[in-house]
Nucleic acid binder design. Structure first.
Lengths: 95, 95
DNA sequence: ACCATAGGCAAGCAGCCACTTGCGTGTCAA
DNA sequence: TTGACACGCAAGTGGCTGCTTGCCTATGGT
């Protein structure tokens, strides 16, 4: 089981999450090409693959195999622990 | 300006945030001793100081000087961008 | 059967990061 | 003023990590 916070630390992984956020069920190659064209990232396929591994190991991305394709989608639910751990109380009033 | 996500990546920093979360306005030495006694962390003063710097540079901790003391408090408001960026939609219903 | 496609495994490398150590600065009390 | 206390600055170091490179497996089309 991976660390959600460490997974969020990398800007590339956050961009991957953005990409999956607005289009679910993408394969590795799709993500690669869309990152290149739409976000200007020129990373190798393995780099993206390793990032997806990290995101999967902490539950932020769920994958499903179908033949030789592997589809990925975002699952933001692990992020809930965050707002529960440090609730954003409204600014403290001072008399 | 620091990176909120990178700041959250370190377990020690999260523990510091926990500590400040339940007791505001602590000095560096207070945080050191409370981390040691209550959380079992035996880190040097500078280590904690550097962590506080990181937390301050991204707005998660706000400090105020008073003579030779420097009081710290937690400000969770930078965490809001998180739930806005990847909203936790309720699990997708499938017919 | 053959080959292209989608993806996985593993080693190697460079840069970063958390932590320590040692010294310096400013503030308060006696 | 002298010394103790709270904190800051800077250099050095070991380990982690993001990325590449090269090779391998498996699935599907023709």
């Amino acid at each position: 089981m991976g660390d959600v916070f460490k997974a969020l630390a990398d800007p590339t992984r956050r961009t991957i999450m953005d990409e999956l956020s607005q289009r679910d069920d993408q394969t590795l190659f799709e993500i690669c090409s869309r990152l290149a064209t739409r976000h200007g990232l020129g990373l190798s396929r393995q780099a993206i693959s390793q990032h997806l591994e990290v995101l999967e190991s902490c539950g932020l991305v769920i994958s499903r195999r179908e033949g030789r394709y592997k589809y990925h989608r975002l699952d933001p639910s692990p992020l809930q622990q965050l707002s529960e751990r440090w609730p954003v109380r409204p600014r403290q009033e001072e008399p």
